[in-house]
């Protein structure tokens, strides 16, 4: 899942590296680091905003390690899935591993398949599905659609997206 985290560092060299290392140690994938050297907190620390993806179950342990290293964790935010779109699929959807199709989106960490309705006509006729994709932002939603298109095009499934 995608996490945004505000941390506060002591104003001595080497602190940023000290704070970022545990994130990668826990398998996290840093997406952005905003280091505001010219700003200071009232206690004289330097605020830094991090955005990273990490497995949810590892988050608590990461926060502990950061604290052990003298990093203040001021705020943790889970990025919510706030943008959605409906797309339609036509083809042999079930017989082409629908689970894998869904996983291709869910495994991104920034988007999910939140709804899927399937219609199944007679055997070996093409079926249709409407799929609702949700993502944490507009760009991510577009990327999720690209991933979906790439995944199903290989399976001969047509994707009908919204205008």
């Amino acid at each position: 899942m995608k996490i945004s985290m505000d941390i506060e560092l002591k104003d001595i060299p080497g602190q940023l590296v000290r704070a970022l290392k545990p994130v990668s140690d826990f398998g996290g994938n840093l997406l952005s680091v905003l280091h505001q050297r010219d700003k200071k907190t009232p206690s004289g620390r330097i605020p830094v905003q991090l955005v990273f993806e990490i497995e949810e179950r590892r988050l608590d342990r990461l926060v502990e390690v950061l604290k052990e290293r003298g990093v203040n964790v001021a705020r943790i935010g889970k990025e919510r899935l706030k943008d959605s779109m409906v797309v339609l699929l036509i083809g042999h959807i079930v017989h082409s591993d629908v689970r894998e199709t869904i996983d291709s989106i869910d495994s991104t960490g920034f988007a999910e398949v939140v709804e899927l309705s399937l219609s199944m006509p007679a055997v070996d006729k093409k079926s249709a599905a409407s799929v609702t994709l949700s993502a944490i932002g507009k760009e991510e939603l577009k990327e999720a659609l690209n991933i979906l298109e790439r995944t199903v095009n290989k399976k001969g499934i047509m994707v009908i997206s919204s205008v």
Binding site: L88, I90, S117, P121, A128
Partner: peptide, 18 residues
């Protein structure tokens, strides 16, 4: 040519036309 009545129905249920 590959559009099916099922697809149109699902689209309709979700508030769309194809």
């Amino acid at each position: 040519t590959d559009i099916t009545p099922d697809a149109l129905k699902l689209a309709n249920d979700a508030g769309y036309m194809i």
